[in-house]
Amino acid sequence: MDRRIKKNQTAIMNALIQLMTEKDFEKITINEIAERADVNRGTIYSHYADKYDLMDKCLEAQLQQLIESCSVVVDETESNPSKSSLLRTLELLEENALFYKTLLRNKALLSFRNQLQDMINKQIKAQFLENNLTLDELSKDISVQFLSSAAVGVIEWWFTHSNPCTAKEITEKLWSLLDTNLQMIRSQA
């Protein structure tokens, strides 16, 4: 991709994020985004159909980064690759705290929360419950939903309370809770 195009798209997405910290998404106009990004309206429309398409592309890019960071990397030097994956994900969230805090706070963007939970659902199912042959499918589904809802709830709390601890500290606490519950689920099978 041409560097100029990438630079414009980044400026447009950053402008949208900045504006979302100041007002509701529904009240933001293309003119405001263009002015903040220092591009003309035509540039925005050459990349995005409308502000909703822009938001979707912005979410897709951020979620793709989260998915990549959340993937477990097999490394013999790590004692717990799943926990390391959680830490990498929370560190990425922490690095982009303003964006995620804005998304989680903005009522118009409930889809982000749902997509985040879906991503965590898949990771929990793949990493912890897929190979547990003693659990029936309903038990697996309920367990995954419970654990992912808890994880998303903790992440939301972390952002709404202005990140009162580091990504490493919250990873330790969240991992302890998830691990305890996973052990209970496995013992009930």
Rank of each mutant, 00 (worst) to 15 (best):
K122Y: 03
N181R: 15
T134E: 09
D141F: 03
D24N: 13
N31T: 13
L66W: 10
P164N: 02
E91G: 03
W158N: 03
E78T: 09
K23N: 01
S69A: 09
E94S: 11
I44W: 08
F25L: 03
R105M: 15
T89C: 10
L54F: 08
A126N: 14
I142F: 08
D2G: 07
K6V: 06
E32D: 02
T43H: 05
N181K: 15
E22V: 01
A126T: 12
K27N: 11
Q188S: 09
D179Q: 14
K6I: 05
N8C: 12
L104Y: 00
S69G: 05
M20I: 00
Q145Y: 15
A61S: 14
L104V: 01
L19Q: 03
D53F: 07
E22H: 03
Q65A: 09
S143G: 10
L16F: 02
T134A: 04
E91M: 05
T43A: 12
P164I: 06
K168A: 15
F128K: 09
T171G: 08
F159M: 03
L86N: 00
R105V: 14
V154M: 13
M184S: 13
D53S: 03
L129M: 07
R3G: 00
R105I: 14
F112P: 01
E32V: 06
R3K: 07
N96D: 04
S149V: 12
Q18M: 10
T166E: 04
I44S: 08
A49K: 15
D75C: 06
R3E: 06
T160Y: 06
A61T: 11
A34S: 10
N31E: 11
F146H: 13
F128G: 07
R186Q: 12
D24C: 05
R4I: 07
L109P: 02
F99L: 07
Q18E: 13
S149W: 11
K23F: 07
Q117V: 08
Q9N: 01
I170C: 01
F99N: 07
L66P: 01
R3C: 01
L110Q: 12
E35W: 07
I44N: 02
D118I: 04
W175S: 06
S85H: 04
E94I: 06
W157S: 06
A37R: 03
V73H: 11
S79Y: 10
L63Q: 00
I155F: 07
K6P: 05
R41F: 02
M119K: 13
I120K: 11
Q115A: 12
T134W: 11
L16W: 04
Q18W: 08
E22S: 01
M55H: 13
Q115K: 09
Q183Y: 10
H161Q: 05
L129N: 04
R113P: 01
I12E: 05
